[in-house]
């Protein structure tokens, strides 16, 4: 059963990567990298249970946090063109 879950996760990762490569707008890519991160976390959890070592769950949780930080950084850059200041700049993006 875990094998089926892992295969389904790999297929959805492939779809997300396809979207990241083709994605016409930056929103597609941000969404796809976010969902790749989620799929990695899920893959880790499923793989841990499939091999009988659910200790991987802790690492999966840390991955979820790192993925969140990365997404926040990308979104902040996209919004402000800058990571240092919190100022809003009107710009054509």
């Amino acid at each position: 059963m875990f094998s089926a879950i892992i295969i389904a996760l790999l297929v959805s990762m492939a779809l997300a990567i396809t979207r990241a490569l083709l994605g016409p707008t930056i929103y597609d890519r941000i969404l796809s990298v976010n969902s790749i991160g989620t799929k990695t976390v899920l893959l880790m959890a499923a793989y841990g249970f499939a091999t009988g070592r659910p200790d991987f769950l802790d690492i999966a949780l840390v991955y979820a946090l790192i993925n969140f930080i990365g997404t926040i950084a990308i979104l902040k850059f996209f919004e402000y063109h800058d990571l240092g200041s919190g100022a809003y700049q009107e710009d054509d993006y």
Partner: peptide, 29 residues
Amino acid sequence: IGIIVLRDLLAAVILLGMYSLIAAGIFIV
């Protein structure tokens, strides 16, 4: 290949982050 081909550097950075997440998954396995 996507990082090499894409001209949009923001997309390349996003793909690089994706690359690291997948590589980390390989290391876990």
